[in-house]
Computed example of a mutant assay.
Amino acid sequence: MTADWKAASASFVLRHHDAAGQIATHLRHLISSGVWQPGERLPSEAELAAGFSVARGTVREALKNLSAAGMVRSVRGNTGGTFVSLPTVARLTETLSESIRMRQASGPITVSEIDEARLHLERSCVALAADRRTDEDLERMRECIDRSRDLSISKAERLELDTMFHSAVATAARNEILDIAMTAVHIARGFADSTLTEAAFEPEHRLHAIDQHMAILEAIENRAPASAIKALDDHVKFMHSLRIEESPEDA
């Protein structure tokens, strides 16, 4: 299929500004549309440079862009070259969460919007998890809960275990897109948790939140989607009550 890349690029018009970025975007489009499959080798830098009528250095910069995004990998040697990579769930999650964090930090996205997205995504996750969970999924959730009950752990460890628990729920839903989106939102929420009041980390409130995690787990274990959604809603409402209210400018 590699030979089709020139035909697929027939309508591509390269502008003078940021040629490497434009080529990277176009190559990304060709990869995502199936011109090259995961594991296939891309044309050489020289061939790509000739095809786009640019210097090899421009193509090299474009390929570095794709490599940073996890879409290609470089292999040295006689049988080496640049090969298409299938982005991992971890890479996609990281990229999405970083984008959400950047927009939240700069203002377009508020903490309330992140929480709203989290609630609607996770309602779907807990309902599906109640139907599709495995014993291994339940064990992952239970381990997070058990570790969280140790009141001597730091605030950072507590928040990390919270993310791990909800990530385990998302994984149990057996829907990769929901898993990526849900985990990314939870990671982004971790950076937004400066809005939690100190009361959220007091033993009484910490243990109550952990008990709510257990209620979610038990509903999923009992394959009761409606109960799982209800337990999640109770948990989100409780955690929201422990947040600092956003100012009108932030909302």
Rank of each mutant, 00 (worst) to 15 (best):
T25D: 13
M182L: 11
T171G: 13
G190D: 08
I114L: 15
E40Q: 14
I31D: 02
A172V: 11
H213W: 08
R189E: 05
S53D: 13
R133Q: 08
I187S: 00
F201G: 01
T58A: 08
A62H: 06
T79Q: 09
R118D: 00
D18L: 05
A90Q: 07
G51H: 03
S97D: 05
E94T: 14
E143A: 11
H29C: 02
D137M: 11
E139Q: 14
Q22P: 13
D146M: 10
H186Q: 15
A49M: 07
M102N: 04
A55Y: 06
A224C: 07
D18V: 08
D146G: 14
A226L: 00
S167W: 00
F201M: 03
E61A: 10
E157L: 07
Q212P: 03
P38S: 10
L63D: 06
Q22T: 12
V13W: 06
R28N: 10
L42P: 07
H26R: 02
D4S: 09
D211Y: 01
A173S: 15
E202N: 09
L196K: 09
F191P: 00
S152A: 09
S247Y: 04
M71L: 14
D233H: 10
L119Y: 09
A130V: 07
L232A: 10
A129V: 10
I145Y: 00
L48D: 04
I180Q: 08
S154Y: 01
A181H: 15
E122F: 14
G21M: 02
R149G: 03
L178Y: 15
E45C: 07
E218D: 13
N175V: 11
A69H: 08
T95K: 12
D135R: 15
A130I: 09
E139D: 12
R56C: 02
A19V: 05
L92Y: 01
Q37A: 11
S154R: 09
T195F: 00
R142E: 14
N78W: 03
R223W: 05
S11A: 11
C144K: 02
